[in-house]
Design a protein around this nucleic acid. Structure first.
Lengths: 253, 253
DNA sequence: CCAAAAGTGTTGGCTATACACCCATGC
DNA sequence: GCATGGGTGTATAGCCAACACTTTTGG
């Protein structure tokens, strides 16, 4: 029940033969204008949106497949990627409904009756992404996490599960390191945390806590431009941050 | 590269047709004599051990497949089961080595070149398990987690990843609820935590912490038998424990 | 000069940790 | 009676949460 075009025998060769009935779905998250945003695809000749994803090839690992999909949709390599859940229900969506919504492009022979999907979320620097649609879609675009429309398949559900996993990881993974540009201000980092956690944080406590981890480096420059006091710029000190992660003594918020 | 006997066409029907190249591996954990133990299977006519596992049928969810395997190997229903990782490398083990080790029973036609495996761990009450081998194995037996032999496939690695996931969940999931009998003593619970975390805990602090959660109920009886003061018996107060879990304010150790 | 946002310290309560002795039981 | 393990309290330090005012900047 998920696209399998490349597994059609006429497409099969060593490079493109696929593991049947196994797919990936990728929740690609960025942060822009103090909003968490997710990359969605619009299917050809429809107004139907879904998550990026795709099959796993016979000659690549599941993680490599996720990296490949990410690279294709964003142009980025070396993305922070996290497997978070396997969606293995027998009926993950209503086949008739999908057939109706995708009637212009739906060929029953190219769809599995059932597919198991491995969910990954990816954290990327919004500003360095070049959103790119795939062979089935016309458009690839960022959506604010609050404004996501009704998606195809069980993709709204998958996003909810991804956000839960992200919140959970927020306390022991350096989310900000992956979602922000190299240089950022503490108010920006705080907004990111507030957005993911969906609650306000106290700026004094936040700064004390984050700076206390010893993984942030204050730069000599400040960010100019707002009609207000200019904030300091920071960057993650990669070595200290990785050392802290290894010892497992980084606890955020 | 994993058994697929049931997917051989002559076995296929609606009940047994399988999702190809997708398997489960189950780390079934129990606690006995102050030791964490894991259930392993010995392959027919060999001295080779591996984890219980198997394929997913076309008409069952992945979680249901895990429950089914658990039921078959332990006799238990309604087990605490947790998906923890997908093992999706292309070469998860050395095919020649497996062929040699299982030469008496290895039929290349019945094995996939490659399979992706979903790892589950299960926490069970040791004393209520009836270990039962499957069609490929002669013996099903508990092994102390410290004494596990070299296993087939990548199963030693899978166990290590499962234990990491378990340690991580220990801080926000009520592990003891699933691994101990209904009635247990606080020293037993403490030993369980010490075993999983692999460090000593202070008994005074442990008791204050656990009893402070308000999810344990002290029974009027004590456990007799040791050459020493008889300890109190406790049981989990299921309602309070589930209420606490929902509110997310249970933090263990 | 005003509006908007950034930067900064102190306190009180709570939680985690460290630490040692007496008690009950079976042999 | 003795060896074994169980049960219990207190003191300290560190952490977290609550709280408001001053500074800088652009317009």
């Amino acid at each position: 029940m998920t696209k399998q075009k490349e597994s059609d025998p006429k497409f099969a060769d060593e490079n493109t033969s696929l593991i049947p009935q196994l797919t990936l779905d990728c929740i690609i998250l960025g942060f822009h204008n103090n909003q968490l945003r997710v990359l969605l695809l619009r299917w050809k000749n429809t107004q139907e949106w879904s998550l990026p994803g795709g099959p796993v090839r016979q000659n690549e690992s599941v993680n490599a497949a996720a990296q490949r999909i990410l690279k294709e949709r964003t142009g980025l390599d070396q993305i922070f990627l996290q497997q978070f859940h396997v969606f293995g229900e027998v009926e993950r969506y209503n086949r008739a409904e999908i057939q109706e919504k995708l009637k212009l492009i739906f060929d029953p022979n190219l769809w599995y009756e059932r597919a198991v999907s491995i969910g990954y979320y990816a954290l990327v620097d919004y500003s360095s992404v070049t959103p790119t649609p795939d062979a089935y879609t016309d458009e690839c675009q960022w959506w604010d996490i609050q404004d996501i429309p009704k998606l195809l398949f069980d993709h709204n559900h998958i996003i909810q599960v991804a956000l839960q996993a992200l919140r959970h990881q927020l306390s022991w993974q350096p989310i900000g390191y992956n979602l922000l540009p190299h240089e950022f201000t503490l108010p920006e980092l705080q907004k990111l945390y507030e957005t993911i956690l969906d609650r306000k944080l106290d700026p004094r406590n936040f700064q004390r806590k984050l700076l206390g981890l010893g993984i942030l480096e204050r730069l000599p420059t400040r960010r100019k431009g707002g009609a207000h006091k200019s904030p300091y710029l920071y960057r993650f000190d990669k070595e200290k941050y990785e050392a802290g992660l290894k010892e497992g003594n980084l606890f955020f918020i």
